[in-house]
């Protein structure tokens, strides 16, 4: 069973195109300079439509997670961590942690992480995170 994949909308297309090209793209407000996620064509802090996409550092820390033990046929790798990372630029993002044992001992909160893109289809690469080298 193929993995459940996102379907981009016009408002999120730049993000998924970025992932395909190996770039984690955030948006920020040119008026109040707040960085935000998920994508939308206006600043959720001040309402301005003057926003720009930019290439984020890809650096993050492990913010929180669970290790899922229940079967999900399109994943098939249980147990695996479903994580929230806090990006260096501020926003949080749900993701998976790769290149790391999926155990409480190995997955330490606040550990530094780096983005790593996993190609799933011609259109979609998912932004996953690995322990920073």
């Amino acid at each position: 069973m193929p993995r459940m994949l996102p379907e981009a909308t016009p408002e999120t297309r730049h993000f998924w195109d970025g992932c395909k090209e190996g770039e984690l793209r955030l948006q920020r407000c040119t008026a109040c300079s707040d960085s935000y996620f998920p994508p939308r064509p206006f600043c959720p802090k001040c309402g301005s439509r003057d926003v720009e996409a930019y290439k984020a550092s890809g650096d993050a820390i492990l913010w929180s997670y669970v290790i899922n033990h229940r079967p999900r046929p399109d994943m098939g790798t249980e147990p695996y961590a479903i994580a929230v990372v806090k990006l260096a630029e501020g926003p949080t993002m749900m993701t998976n942690i790769v290149d790391c044992p999926q155990t409480p001992e190995a997955l330490r909160l606040d550990m530094p992480l780096t983005v790593s893109f996993s190609k799933q289809s011609d259109d979609i690469s998912l932004p996953l995170f690995a322990p920073a080298k």
Binding site: R3, M4, L5, P6, E7, A8, T9, T12, W16, P38, S64, Y65, V66, N68, R70, P71, R72, M75, Y80, I82, A83, V84, M93, M94, T95, N96, Q120, L126
Partner: peptide, 19 residues
Amino acid sequence: GQFEMPYGPVGPPSMFTVP
């Protein structure tokens, strides 16, 4: 569907508990 489901949640037990 875009920003959470691709990462493997299996209903509320593996989502509501994430924080």
